[in-house]
Design a protein around this nucleic acid. Sequence first.
RNA 1: CGGGGUGUGGCUCAAUGGUAGAGCGUUCGCUUGGGGUGCGAGAGACCCCGGGUUCGAUUCCCGGCACCCCGACCA
Length: 580
Amino acid sequence: MKLSSYFLPTLRQAPGDADNISTKLMFRAALIRKLASGIYEWLPLGFKVLKKVENIVREELDKIGAQEVWLPVIQPKDLWVETGRWAVYGKELLRIKDRKDSEFCFAPTAEEVITNMVRRDVTSHRQLPMTLYQFGAKFRDEIRPRFGVMRAREFYMKDAYSFHATEEDCENYYKVMFKAYERIFKRCGFKFMSVEADSGPIGGNLSHEFMVISETGEAQIALCDCGYAANVEKAEAAESEYSIDESKFKPMADIATPDMYTVEDVANFMKISKKRFIKTLFFIADEEPVLALIRGDNELNENKLRKALNAVNLEKASETVYQSISDCKVGFAGPVDIKSRFKSSKDSSKPLKTIIADYALKGVLNGVSGANKDDYHTVNINIGRDYNPDAFADLHVASEGDLCLKCGNPLKFSRGIEVGQTFKLGVKYSKSLKCEFVDEHQKSIPMVMGCYGIGISRIVAAAIEQSNDKDGIIWPPSIAPFEISLITIETEDEEVYKTSERIYNEIHKIGMTVLWDERNERAGIKFKDSDLIGLPYRIVISAKTLKDSECEFKMRSSDKAERWKLSELSAKLLELKNKI
RNA sequence: CGGGGUGUGGCUCAAUGGUAGAGCGUUCGCUUGGGGUGCGAGAGACCCCGGGUUCGAUUCCCGGCACCCCGACCA
């Protein structure tokens, strides 16, 4: 491609709202432009990268027998009602109506549609297993899009779905897919790791996320030297050994804390560590009010609470429920005698029956919590003496100081960008959508499913996030939009231009891709643009080196340039090509 | 959803109660030719939309919209 006619409007400055490195570079190198919040246009250079990534993914999936399809982005409400997700998905699901007022949604994922497709035409165990996949735009109406295409509302994704006759077959294929994912991310040039994940709204009982390791990543990972690695949303902590010396118990006392609603406020006011605070959180679990207790420095993990309670629905209690149970303003409830404070007058909420506490509270001596009295907190609350939870469980989001469930050593924490996730779904969708097949015994049973996503557009951002310098992007050769940046310094010098053109054609002949900067611009501009765009190999043709029948060769990732004989250029490039 | 901020040429930003300016980019000419060079000339903005106050509003007030930031499980 000749640069003079290529749509590549590079910018010297990134737009003011670009909020991380990869987004700034993607704007400056003219990969993307923004159309609306979380919605992006992909320019030719960016689109090329997208296609490069797509191809790697396609090759690896085809290798494991998956078949490519193309599914609608606009999907009818009915199917979503069948699986119950029309109600469950919430505002992230963008809903639209057509001219007849029929309701549709813009696909955030495609389990419904694909399962519907398969249930119609796959009816026998002889047709299984089967894996289908597609590339396509997905839309999720994120609360707060940020970090450019990394957390966009519309994004480009690969989603694959596998259908199996047995649990065992599904599990085996899950491993095959897992290996394919490892090959894909390796080929993209990533430093990555796979971690255990929570399956979230998609469902299922086994899930992994593939994380590109990056300090700027949104996801937090809990790691252990023993090999355990999990998303913090999922990471479980081992119960530490707690011992409290009852002889150190002090008498309880109420202290005035006007208008101090948060642990932060009260801890600062009393000059007591947050670790001595007992957070009291009210939830409604399947219609019943529940009190969850967490140590002041920890965060509650709702998934863990849901599991501990064995609840289907879990939501934070409303202010009225809070007040009718504690009989005080929000922010001042505490565990002491809480069950007996219920005032039913305020609404129809039920009395509190269950108090569940995080293990860590077993180690809190002379704790602090709300006094169940407006503007007061109680100090020196002790477990056993002053309150007794009905149950203990691991309820908090894993954090510094927690111990590995597998080996007991302290967990470490790191950050990553999630570029892919695999789920073993089981029969969640096949059951609700009656996606069944007839087995050898003439019995109709639901298929066992797996689903597997890769964020293609996010991969592009992650690649840049992981590989750049002060001058711009440094593409891994496998996903670079072009392999070679060919720069002609004195375009008006006929010999220089002619030689450049010859080399340009030669590069094509050996099957490599090249972006030729033959603009009538100054050298500085060309070098700056070339570094910004970040193609892996750079060849410079100028009068200076041409007089020795040489050109200059430089890798984007190194700062040393070499002189290459023009006569050897093709052979040397071929060598490079074979390494990609 | 709550709080805050911003909206002025393609980009980054100024200024102003009397309808606007810079840098970058762009166009033309010259210059230069190995790291965003220098000079000159030119094009390009009904100052987000609607309403109000005013003789007069891009500027002040109100409403809307868009975008950005922070928070959203806090107790």
